[in-house]
Each structure stands twice: as structure tokens, then as C-alpha cells.
Computed example of a mutant assay.
Amino acid sequence: MPEARHVFVYGTLRRGGRNDINRLTPAPRYVGMGEVKGCLYHLDWYPGLALGGEQPVTVVGEVYEVSPQLEAVLDEIEAIVPGPDSEYFKRELPVDVGGRPIACLVYEINPARVAGKRRIEHGDWVLFSSGEKNIS
């Protein structure tokens, strides 16, 4: 039987976001705040994370333990499909959680989707999206 895995969520799946992972079933278990190095982009009402890259910043997010059933739901939300045209690609990598690495699934944006998109220099989607709401 497949075991639970960890996932790093950095955008609308974060607590209070449009797709808050805590509203999904089966319920995840919160582990802590995490960080990865990459470039965060504003695509529309949601972000995309490109891992590494030129001048990466610290991208912050939340780490949860998820069941295989919830992982399948996340794959649907992130539009994971076979082949190079998927909107996101699912990666597994160590995420820093309170100074210790935890192997996590990370949904990385397809590089073709970020061409010409605005980069979020501070790496925090919640901070960025709350600022955008205050400007509107």
C-alpha cells in the first residue's frame, strides 16, 4: 500500500488561498513552513515556481504530509498530464523545513509558461497576492 508523502505548496494551495489544501479531502497534516531556491512568477490568479535558475531567491511555502488519495487530487488541480505540455511537472526534492531537509513533492511550472511573466522578487505568493488585493 502506498505511503503518505510530503508536499511543498507555495501558491493558491497555501492556508487561506483560493485552493487551500486544508479544505481538501482527505485532510493533510501540516508539518511546517518550508523554503526552496527558485524563481516565482505571477501567471494570472496563481503563481508558478521555476526551481533554481538565474538569480534564484528563497521561495517560501508550507509543507504537508498527504495521502496518495490527496496527492491524486493535487495532480488534478495542478493539471499534471504526461508529456512536455503539462502545465506543471511534479518533482521530488529536499525542502528546508526549520533547518532540516524533508523530501517533498514540488509542482514546478513548465518553463514555457513563464516566458514574459512578471517575476515575484521576494518569493512569497501570499505576500504578493495580499499586496495586489490592497492595490485594486
Rank of each mutant, 00 (worst) to 15 (best):
P2Y: 01
E3Y: 03
A4C: 09
R5F: 00
V7Q: 05
Y10P: 02
G11C: 12
L13I: 09
R14E: 13
N19S: 02
N22C: 15
R23C: 11
R23L: 15
L24Y: 04
L24S: 05
P28E: 11
P28T: 12
V31Q: 08
V31W: 02
G32S: 00
C39H: 02
Y41A: 10
Y46M: 09
A50T: 14
A50V: 15
L51S: 12
L51G: 05
G53I: 04
E54W: 03
Q55E: 15
V57Y: 02
V57F: 03
V59T: 10
V59K: 04
V59I: 15
E62H: 05
Y64C: 12
Y64A: 15
S67G: 04
S67D: 01
P68E: 10
P68H: 10
P68F: 03
P68Y: 07
Q69W: 06
E71N: 12
L74M: 01
L74W: 01
V81N: 01
G83H: 06
G83S: 06
G83A: 10
G83D: 09
D85G: 07
S86R: 02
Y88A: 00
R91H: 13
E92N: 12
P94V: 00
V95G: 12
D96S: 14
V97E: 06
G98S: 12
P101L: 06
E108N: 03
E108Q: 08
E108C: 15
I109L: 07
K117M: 15
R118Q: 15
R119S: 14
R119Q: 07
R119N: 13
I120H: 09
E121W: 05
H122A: 11
D124E: 08
D124I: 10
V126I: 06
L127A: 13
S130L: 11
E132M: 03
E132T: 04
E132N: 00
S136T: 08
